[in-house]
């Protein structure tokens, strides 16, 4: 464990909690892409099956359970409890355009053609594009609630911090995982446009609105 991975995990946890609280407190999931949340639930489910097979540490186990629990709670709030506030018309990204190519790639490019490894690889690739429906929805509505931009900021920051974690681990432990690194770079690049808008607008107290 190093400071980048710890702050990265805490940033990820903050994002997940911010989103859950936003929906619960405002009793509304307006502006939130349910499809992205489904993808995140799928990412955690396929990545954390090793909860059933190996114990790494209490921290590892507890964080995985929190991530999976919050992901499914968020999907439940969006599609069941506050379904009336779900903006399905603007959440129109075709999930099959992500899941199918990612599934194919995971079968072609992986470290080991075993069940758990293929699922882990699938989850790594899927996570790198899972935010696309959310970013697509914001580009369609042309705006985002400020609390939603904070959610996206911490979510994007977490994988950026993981990039530093991988530099750290390569330098100090000689450890690196090319699949996770490449997917992590792609994932972070997808946020660059949002990061620019977040720093230049939201941090200056303005509302995040895209030129329609």
């Amino acid at each position: 464990m190093n400071i980048f991975r710890l702050t990265g995990d805490l940033s990820h946890l903050a994002a997940i909690i911010i989103l859950l609280l936003k929906i619960w407190k405002t009793r509304s999931c307006a502006g939130i892409s349910g499809k992205s949340q489904i993808l995140f639930a799928l990412v955690f489910t396929t990545r954390y099956l090793d909860l059933l097979t190996s114990f790494i540490s209490f921290y590892n186990t507890i964080m995985k359970l929190i991530y999976i629990g919050c992901a499914y709670a968020t999907v439940y709030l969006i599609y069941m409890k506050f379904k009336a506030t779900y903006d399905g018309n603007h959440d129109s990204f075709r999930l099959e355009f992500l899941v199918v190519p990612v599934g194919g790639l995971a079968c072609l490019v992986n470290h080991d053609f075993s069940f758990l490894e293929i699922l882990w690889t699938f989850s790594i690739y899927l996570e790198s594009v899972a935010i696309l429906p959310q970013l697509f929805m914001i580009s369609k509505t042309g705006e985002a609630e400020t609390i939603t931009t904070h959610y996206l900021f911490f979510l994007g920051l977490y994988r950026a911090l993981y990039l530093f974690n991988w530099i750290w681990r390569f330098y100090f432990e000689g450890f690196f995982d090319m699949i996770a690194i490449v997917a992590g770079v792609v994932q972070t690049i997808l946020y660059c446009d949002f990061f620019y808008l977040y720093v230049t607008k939201v941090l200056k107290g303005k509302k995040l609105s895209l030129p329609a």
Binding site: N60, Y67, W120, Y162, D177
Partner: peptide, 10 residues
């Protein structure tokens, strides 16, 4: 050991 090591990230 390496397997456990390289899957210790969330």
């Amino acid at each position: 050991e390496t397997l456990k090591k390289d899957k210790d990230e969330l």
